[in-house]
């Protein structure tokens, strides 16, 4: 594996496109990452032929593209994402939902009700009220208008019970793990149901508060140590140790 990578960097030199950082190296905004014919990926930008980092994160690249895996960022809505949000306002034709993004999302009453929506006949607060938590999906969004949500899909709707954990949205892929390895491990070890919102909110439903507490601990550990290697093993180890501790007590 390592050998392969060395060969690649050799290729870069031949093509006269210098790179100034190794993979997984920590960079800060403004760090000059590469010069030449690369594509500036996530959390980087291009000025003439020079590519700079725009966030704190870890460098990663392939033959054509260089990007930075951010260590801290906020959620930017994207169509198709499942997100967890909180109702902050009940309007005349729908609800305003805080989805932990720079923009408030809208949930239209017509998309929630089965029957035609009428101002007099439909009592919106009785369906969702301010403070209610929802699992929703983004169905439309561009930066000129606020994101639009839906709850008309299986698995979506009001959250009745469970615990919420907030992590930095950029760490969601790490929480899921490669092909879901991390999350399925946590589910198995703690026997909790876990719903992940792409906006950094995670819902945990366990049989006992103790199970939920374990899952919360695991998620916090992932967030804190997301930029280290061998994390799945560390988390598994921690969970097993904690479980034993509980059984003995």
């Amino acid at each position: 594996m390592k050998q392969k990578w060395l060969n690649k960097s050799f290729v870069f030199k031949v093509m006269n496109m210098p790179l100034f950082y190794e993979k997984k190296q920590l960079v800060t905004p403004g760090d000059f990452l590469a010069e030449g014919n690369y594509i500036a990926g996530e959390n980087t930008y291009k000025d003439d032929d020079k590519i700079y980092a725009s966030r704190v994160g870890l460098v990663d690249y392939d033959a054509r593209k260089i990007h930075v895996v951010a260590l801290k960022a906020f959620y930017v809505p994207s169509v198709g994402d499942t997100v967890i949000g909180k109702i902050v306002e009940v309007g005349t034709g729908g609800w305003a939902v805080d989805i932990n993004a720079p923009y408030l999302a809208m949930l239209r009453a017509a998309d929630v009700l089965d029957r035609p929506f009428g101002f007099r006949t439909s009592d919106l607060p009785s369906i969702f009220d301010v403070g209610d938590l929802l699992i929703t999906k983004i169905i439309a969004y561009d930066r000129t208008r606020d994101p639009l949500l839906t709850v008309r899909e299986p698995g979506l709707g009001k959250i009745m019970r469970g615990q919420l954990v907030k992590v930095t949205p950029t760490k969601i892929p790490r929480v899921i793990g490669r092909k879901g390895s991390m999350i399925s491990m946590i589910k198995k070890e703690t026997t909790c149901q876990i719903t992940i919102g792409q906006n950094g909110l995670i819902l945990i439903n366990g049989k006992t508060p103790e199970d939920e507490r374990l899952a919360v601990m695991a998620l916090h550990k992932i967030e804190e140590e997301s930029h280290t290697s061998g994390l799945t093993d560390h988390v598994t180890e921690m969970l097993k140790k904690k479980k034993e501790g509980v059984e003995h007590a």
């Binding site: 905004p29 930008y45 000025d47 725009s54 966030r55 704190v56 906020f74 930095t168």
Partner: peptide
């Protein structure tokens, strides 16, 4: 600003 995760050209 950098700690808030706001994209920046440079510090």
């Amino acid at each position: 600003l950098a700690d808030a995760g706001i994209p920046m050209r440079d510090l």
